[in-house]
């Protein structure tokens, strides 16, 4: 199998898009480091499940919103795990609310967890990729980062930042055979959109040309494509996966 011997680090891998992506990578015989912040139980389940299916997964508990400890945790992880070939910066939070009533704590927390943490994680993983002259990085942006959304100014800012980060990094590391791309999902069925009422979800589905919300597996398929050698000539790009909502 083509991906044999490769290792991926997926952040936010115990739920939603991260979980589906980790699962798909494992199915393709990639060793996966399951990055997560809170739920030991969910992470252990994924590792156990992988092992039962003859696949290799390791859990890595790192709280990406904790700027004080994140660098230490990452250093320990890299020392333990060695080189990482594929990185999926997926972990993200959305604490919706109008800007007028958003506390600066909330704004900073969103930008830190979604954008700054992705950059910090990448910095640590990059050293190994540069030495090996091989790597593929996928950053999770959002259509909201390109189009905005009322009630999501901090989230939109962080996700737009991911796009700028992706482009700049792509230019920086291309000479080391490392590709960097972003995915901009629309409305995907996860815990993050689970908070919407059925009524709201139906209204959104009606606005989507494909008439449905996306599944985490849809995004996972795109992530795998971007990581793979099929995308060897793709770098610095952001691909929307939104059923046509942005049109």
């Amino acid at each position: 199998m083509r991906f044999l011997g490769k290792t991926a680090f997926v952040t936010g891998a115990t739920r939603g898009i991260g979980k589906a992506t980790a699962k798909l990578l494992l199915q393709n015989d990639i060793k996966v480091i399951i990055g997560y912040a809170h739920s030991d139980k969910l992470a252990e389940e994924i590792v156990k499940n992988a092992s039962e299916n003859g696949k290799q997964a390791t859990a890595a508990k790192i709280d990406l919103s904790d700027t004080a400890s994140i660098e230490k945790s990452l250093k320990e992880l890299i020392d333990k795990v060695g080189t990482i070939d594929y990185l999926v910066n997926n972990a993200g939070i959305a604490e919706d609310g109008l800007l007028l009533v958003s506390s600066s704590d909330k704004i900073i927390r969103t930008i830190n967890t979604n954008l700054v943490a992705s950059m910090t994680v990448t910095k640590f993983v990059l050293k190994g990729m540069i030495k090996k002259r091989f790597g593929s990085i996928v950053n999770m942006s959002s259509i909201v980062g390109e189009d905005g959304n009322a009630g999501q100014t901090a989230y939109a800012a962080s996700k737009a930042g991911i796009i700028g980060f992706t482009k700049a990094l792509a230019k920086e590391v291309a000479s080391r055979n490392i590709r960097v791309n972003a995915i901009a999902p629309g409305f995907i069925q996860t815990d993050m959109t689970g908070v919407l009422s059925e009524n709201d979800k139906n209204k959104i589905a009606n606005r989507i040309p494909l008439n449905r919300l996306g599944k985490p597996e849809d995004v996972a398929n795109l992530a795998l494509f971007l990581l793979s050698e099929e995308a060897n000539y793709i770098t610095g790009d952001t691909i929307r996966i939104d059923g046509g909502l942005h049109l």
């Binding site: 230019k171 040309p209 849809d218 398929n221 795109l222 494509f225 000539y233 790009d237 691909i239 942005h246």
Partner: peptide
């Protein structure tokens, strides 16, 4: 990729395949 079900939630999109020629 675009012809297959792997892209079943992607429509109205343009995928650049350009080695970063136009970032």
């Amino acid at each position: 990729f675009l012809a297959s079900d792997l892209s079943s939630h992607i429509t109205g999109e343009v995928i650049k395949v350009d080695g970063g020629q136009y970032i």
